[in-house]
């Protein structure tokens, strides 16, 4: 079994269908107004050489997460074994300092005010590196589950 894995976004394969986004929301019962994964569009070039390209907004599970360092109550933890950054929502006080600290604007806050974000379905899969719904639903395999040890 693998120890570390990551979800890779291959921009040129993304067709901007947003399947991953809604798969994530429905499989994880993510509340309205909150996104753990989001496909956004940026424009490049001037008309008529303009084209829109996708960018993926989701937690990057940083090696040295700024959110964890900033959290005053130690509610955010880097799980070094798996490579995932996990939030203990029971501990979180909803101060949003993590949001200020994150360079990617990842932390999300719903009705209960605590921080939530993509966790690679870590607990859902009991820590095993098996593919989460965002990855398995992608028609063009723009999201790929990578393992450090390989299959």
């Amino acid at each position: 079994m693998f120890e570390k894995y990551s979800i890779l976004f291959i921009q040129e394969n993304c067709i901007q269908c947003h399947g991953c986004e809604v798969a994530c929301k429905n499989w994880r019962n993510v509340e309205l107004g909150v996104n753990w994964r989001k496909v956004d569009t940026i424009w490049q070039g001037k008309y008529p050489d303009s084209k829109n390209v996708p960018i993926m907004m989701a937690c990057r599970q940083c090696a040295d997460p700024a959110c964890a360092a900033a959290c005053p109550v130690g509610a955010i933890e880097k799980n070094d074994a798996a490579g995932v950054v996990l939030v203990n929502r029971g501990k979180c006080i909803g101060c949003k300092v993590c949001f200020e600290a994150c360079p990617y604007d990842v932390p999300q806050f719903g009705v209960d005010g605590t921080m939530q974000k993509c966790d690679w379905c870590f607990h859902e899969t009991n820590g095993n590196p098996i593919k989460p719904p965002c990855v398995t639903t992608c028609p063009t395999q723009a999201l790929i589950l990578l393992s450090e040890k390989g299959e």
């Binding site: 607990h123 098996i130 593919k131 398995t136 992608c138």
Partner: peptide, 16 residues
């Protein structure tokens, strides 16, 4: 709330 579930797949898309 998050419900406990396991989502596994055999390497390609979707499920068998």
């Amino acid at each position: 709330m998050i419900t406990k579930r396991r989502y596994s797949s055999s390497g390609t898309l979707g499920l068998t």
